[in-house]
């Protein structure tokens, strides 16, 4: 005989619990985990490469590249000389806390101050799943348009820092910074917004400063 059991549980509950547990461990380990999200082609890998080159002499960096398939991003990042591993999501469009844990275990966090997770390129699914990262950073590139906060609100709500990339291409596109900023802050008043060009280097210093400060604060254990 079947019986009815009342469950009343949020589906994301176990993932959120796992993510919180991981943040605790990262804290104890003095490792800062940054989750980088964006749509495909916004310049995640180029931004990362440049960031790693700028910071690798002052902190120990490890990168986890998550993709559905292939290792092209991991190959590109490995040119910088930092530790990098490739995670395959097996068809899944995002990483969750469990998969991130497996990645961290494979990479090892003992000798890492800044661990970076390059999430699957997608503005929808990665926003739903807490990876256990200390901070979520997202990139929106100028060609994608200033209306993205209207279309993908959750991604803008769960992120702490927004990099608006490809400012060198501004003259070719109708991207309204003011409108974009307003839309983002309506969803998330705390969001730090930094316009950058990972290609020319414009704005990158401000981004490095923000990241440095986050890593320093977390790893100081305060």
């Amino acid at each position: 005989m079947y019986k009815v059991y009342e469950i009343k549980k949020r589906v994301f509950e176990d993932n959120d619990r796992e993510a919180d547990k991981m943040r605790g461990e990262l804290r104890a380990n003095r490792t800062f985990l940054m989750n980088l999200m964006s749509s495909p082609g916004s310049g995640k890998t180029t931004t990362l490469k440049r960031t790693i080159e700028a910071l690798k002499d002052e902190m120990r960096i490890g990168v986890m590249e998550a993709d559905i398939d292939s290792a092209v991003d991991a190959d590109a990042i490995s040119e910088t000389g930092v530790k990098v591993i490739q995670l395959h999501t097996g068809g899944m469009c995002h990483l969750d806390a469990d998969m991130t844990r497996q990645g961290l275990e494979e990479m090892g966090t003992e000798d890492i101050d800044l661990a970076i997770l390059e999430n699957v390129g997608n503005l929808v699914c990665p926003a739903e799943f807490d990876t256990g990262a200390v901070k979520n950073v997202m990139i929106l590139s100028v060609p994608e348009g200033d209306d993205k906060p209207l279309k993908y609100p959750l991604m803008f709500q769960v992120s702490h820092c927004l990099l608006i990339n490809k400012t060198d291409a501004l003259s070719c596109f109708d991207f309204d910074f003011r409108a974009c900023e307003e839309r983002v802050h309506r969803l998330n008043p705390e969001m730090k917004i930094i316009p950058i060009s990972a290609k020319t280097g414009e704005g990158m210093e401000e981004w490095y400063d923000w990241l440095r400060e986050q890593v320093r604060e977390w790893n100081s254990g305060k």
């Binding site: 176990d14 469009c93 699914c125």
Partner: peptide, 18 residues
């Protein structure tokens, strides 16, 4: 397609309830 990920999480919860 995050629906598959959600199904995986639902299944995990059901397994622990079971």
């Amino acid at each position: 397609m995050h629906e598959l990920g959600i199904i995986v999480h639902i299944t995990k919860t059901l397994q622990s309830v079971a």
